[in-house]
Simulated assay, not measured.
Amino acid sequence: MARAGVNAERLTLAAAELADEIGFDNVTVTALARRFGVREASLYSHVRNMRDLRVRVALFALAELADAAGAALAGRSGKDALVAFADAYRDYARAHPGRYAASRLSLDPETAATSAAVRHVEMTRAILRGYRVPESDHIDAIRLLGSTFHGFVSLEAAEAFRHSSDARGTDASWSRILDTLHAALSSWPPS
């Protein structure tokens, strides 16, 4: 690829693609420079440093994931919304493991507040309102959902469930987990 084709957006997309291929933690400026056929130093005119590149990939992934979750949620409420939202996260993690890992990157509060991370929180709050979870408890419920989704997809990606002799596979467990979350949200205890 010609040097003229390099810009911050193309670098971010290339880094996201590379993350899916080799893992987010393995993406380097050297590998990207090779992909573009340029010297490493030339990439630093488009990104400040490796942290800047990692944040760009995280923001890109968060936006993609928010778009997917938003599309899945459209017109749904209650358990249908919960399942659609959860499935969007799981499907994204399966299709884009490196990008999903990037979406878990710790962002500074200012960056997070101006990113697609806000959309994720807003969508989750919309789901919770359908369950009548009091607003004062939203943070706890958001953490419950996020940690459950992330824990499952992370263990699944690491093939941690492969040792199981259960012939049903992970889809059956995923469905039962979502049933359990639905029940928990439906009978959310008062503070």
Rank of each mutant, 00 (worst) to 15 (best):
D67G: 13
L43P: 01
L82F: 07
G78L: 11
A160Y: 06
E122H: 07
S77A: 13
R48I: 10
S175A: 15
R168I: 04
V47D: 05
A184G: 07
S115E: 09
D80N: 10
A68C: 10
R34G: 06
S103D: 00
H46V: 01
A15D: 03
F149A: 02
Y92F: 15
S115R: 09
A19Q: 05
G75A: 02
N49F: 13
P134S: 03
W188N: 06
H96V: 05
P190K: 15
W188P: 02
L59K: 04
G169V: 10
G169E: 12
L43N: 03
R76H: 11
G37E: 07
A72K: 01
R162N: 13
G151W: 10
S103F: 03
H46K: 13
E21C: 02
F161P: 04
R48V: 10
A184D: 09
R94D: 10
F60N: 01
A4P: 03
S175T: 14
D140V: 13
H120V: 01
W188F: 14
E21D: 13
L128C: 05
E64N: 13
R125L: 04
R51I: 08
A58D: 01
G23R: 08
D52E: 11
F161N: 09
V27G: 02
L65Q: 10
Y44R: 08
A58F: 01
A157W: 04
R90S: 06
V38R: 04
E9Y: 11
H96I: 03
A117Q: 13
L181Y: 07
R125P: 00
L144M: 15
D80R: 07
R54D: 01
G130C: 09
V38H: 06
A172T: 13
N49G: 07
R162Y: 07
Y89E: 06
A141K: 05
L11Y: 03
A84C: 12
A86F: 05
A141N: 06
H182Y: 09
D108K: 09
E17N: 11
D87Y: 06
S154C: 09
A172W: 15
A4R: 14
E21G: 02
R99T: 00
R90T: 04
A63E: 15
A72L: 08
A14K: 02
R129C: 06
R90A: 12
R10G: 01
R132P: 00
R104Y: 04
L43W: 09
R94N: 10
R3Y: 12
T148C: 10
R176V: 09
S106V: 12
R176P: 03
D179L: 11
M1K: 10
D87C: 05
N26H: 13
N26M: 10
A61K: 00
Y89W: 14
L43S: 04
E40A: 14
S164W: 12
S106A: 14
A158I: 00
A74R: 14
A88H: 05
A160L: 11
F60G: 00
V47R: 10
V6G: 03
R48Y: 11
V57H: 04
R10Q: 11
R56G: 00
V55R: 02
A102R: 02
Y44P: 00
R125F: 06
V6W: 05
A63H: 13
D87V: 02
T180S: 15
V83A: 06
L82D: 02
A8T: 12
Y100G: 00
A74V: 09
L11N: 01
T114H: 12
S165Q: 12
